[in-house]
Design a protein around this nucleic acid. Structure first.
Lengths: 174, 174
DNA sequence: CCCGTAATCTGGACATTGTCCAGTATTGGA
DNA sequence: TCCAATACTGGACAATGTCCAGATTACGGG
């Protein structure tokens, strides 16, 4: 539980990837491991609690470097700052609560590297597929059984597509 | 091509959804339709070109309202501002170029509502799955055949998982 | 057709997340 | 141990949103 304990593994890992070893980097790596899905800001706080202080720039630089080296994965949930985690290259996805923003890992539904097989790649060279599941976590469901923002299904027919398509319906119905 | 032409369809659509009709809202809806994947800022510019001026707040308010009403879909690519589009409820996904950020629609690979079937929902009530494919568009591929940022596959074995797992390898190999 | 109220829009301040830059400190090899 | 390359610091800046109070507009009822 001491601050400088047992960095030898991390040091070796960094060296193996030709990355200079600094106290800031070690602290950031430990922070990412110990608190998955944390934002850069949260990680900075964690690091400060351990090594005293760190500049915002060092946090961003290091996280960017680790992401480049595939030692850390960056996930960017809509409406929130980027988050970072330990697990890389295993094609898991994320489940985010619309109400409280909590994030959990979720294994891929389809198989090994599923979503990489797009229907039509438009000439793109696709190297990754990112999947975010949206919903409400157990705690938030308990707190508010039926959210008011949800309109009844009757108000949004499944046939709705383009605005232009819906316009036809509007004409008919009014 | 005149500004006030043919709003009756949009007016009916808004009324059908119990939304007050304003010049700003009509202009924003037309802007979203005519330029898919535009950011709020770009849409504001488009609107200003048509009705003269609009406040930033009105743009955000209106887009938020339309998203709530499921008349517009908000997509939030990592590293970029939110973008808005016309197509809703048809479960298509997005393909984004890592180099230039261009975004194209892409039909779902798996079928109707595929990714909604998560392996383990952790007690969440899931209502949407968002998929982003990352890659490089044809233009950017042509411009830079082999990006320098890509390390050879030999440097990142498929077996890489957690940092902690990789640590074992580090020990063995060094 | 006019009025009043509720909803909307405006414009400025502020918050968050991230980048840029110049100068200083640290790392790691010679 | 010393040096050059690399990394870190701290302040300024940029982009994207949100908050708020007051002015304006929409639209249902008289």
């Amino acid at each position: 539980m001491t601050n400088t304990t047992d960095d030898s593994d991390l040091v070796l890992l960094l060296r193996r990837h030709r990355v200079q070893v600094t106290a800031q980097r070690l602290a950031i790596m430990r922070a990412v491991s110990s608190r998955p899905h944390a934002t850069a800001d949260e990680l900075a706080d964690d690091v400060r609690a351990v090594i005293g202080s760190i500049s915002r720039q060092a946090v961003y630089d290091t996280l960017g470097l680790l992401v480049d080296k595939h030692l850390v994965r960056r996930i960017q949930p809509p409406g929130s700052a980027a988050r970072f985690e330990d697990r890389v290259d295993d094609n898991h996805h994320h489940l985010i609560c619309r109400t409280c923003g909590s994030t959990v890992d979720i294994d891929c539904a389809v198989g090994a590297v599923p979503c990489l097989t797009a229907h039509d790649d438009h000439g793109f060279e696709i190297d990754e597929a990112e999947v975010v599941y949206w919903g409400r976590c157990p705690a938030c469901r308990a707190a508010t059984p039926e959210p008011a923002s949800q309109r009844p299904a009757s108000e949004r027919p499944a046939s709705e597509r383009h605005m232009s398509e819906r316009l036809a319906h509007a004409k008919e119905q009014q």
